[in-house]
């Protein structure tokens, strides 16, 4: 269970967002510039809210009044960014292992094999990110976030940098992820079709404000 209630001045407008998300896939839906990415970065711990509170599974991650601000590296929130952000100097396999190394977890070959199979990336393991296609890169990025054993997955427009064909290639993996991984997902998108297909709940943002929350029927 994630609960967010934050304010943040962002250039021309002030983001003021309050919502809660439980299991399944919650979509943060809104036009470009509505503050979706800023909101995601605040949940991840990469951007500091001006006021408010963020809590996950009963643990306070941020509370301005109590002066609590858990750093990003202690939050255990997996992120998949629009541009993938794979580490260029590490092979795909080492990119996937990175979160496990940093979390000091022992190797878990079964979990590794499962994620590699889920995302169909076994033939890429020895390659460098520079040699991957856009769709392959995003799949590896999703695998990397999954293998850190996150308490929450944040997907920030993971398909936005791909063409229609590549999107179609990745969407089934995301559906499997939503149905098989027992991690709650926050999915940021400005694409209604994507959201209809993936989300179980929708939070609509407009100019930094939550204007509606509910099921996917909000989009019809």
């Amino acid at each position: 269970m994630l609960s967010v209630d934050v304010d943040k001045a962002l250039g021309e407008f002030t983001l003021h967002a309050a919502f809660a998300a439980a299991g399944g896939a919650t979509a943060l839906f809104g036009a470009s510039g509505a503050g979706k990415t800023s909101l995601i970065n605040m949940i991840a711990g990469l951007l500091r809210p001006d006021r408010g509170r963020i809590a996950l599974d009963g643990m306070t991650l941020f509370d301005a009044a109590e002066r609590i601000d858990v750093p990003a590296w202690r939050r255990r929130i997996g992120c998949v960014f629009q541009e993938g952000r794979l580490f260029p100097h590490l092979s795909v396999k080492h990119n996937l292992d990175y979160g496990r190394w940093m979390g000091r977890h022992a190797a878990d070959p079964a979990a590794f094999a499962h994620v590699v199979e889920l995302l169909d990336i076994s033939h890429l393991l020895d390659r460098r990110p520079g040699k991957l296609s856009g769709g392959e890169r995003q799949r590896v990025a999703i695998g990397r976030a999954l293998l850190m054993r996150p308490r929450l997955l944040l997907l920030d427009e993971p398909l936005a940098s791909l063409d229609a064909a590549r999107k179609g290639e990745i969407l089934p993996y995301l559906e499997r992820l939503r149905d098989e991984a027992r991690v709650p997902i926050i999915y940021v998108s400005h694409d209604a079709a994507e959201v209809k297909r993936l989300a179980t709940r929708v939070v609509m943002l407009e100019a930094g404000k939550v204007v509606a929350t509910g099921g996917v029927e909000l989009l019809y």
Partner: peptide
């Protein structure tokens, strides 16, 4: 160096020291 790579490393659990050693230095 693209600092967003360091942000990505932080979300994967890399504290400032390991982030520097495994991302910043090699890059």
């Amino acid at each position: 160096i693209d600092r967003r790579l360091e942000d990505a490393a932080a979300t994967l659990g890399a504290g400032p020291f390991w982030n520097f050693v495994t991302i910043t230095l090699p890059l």
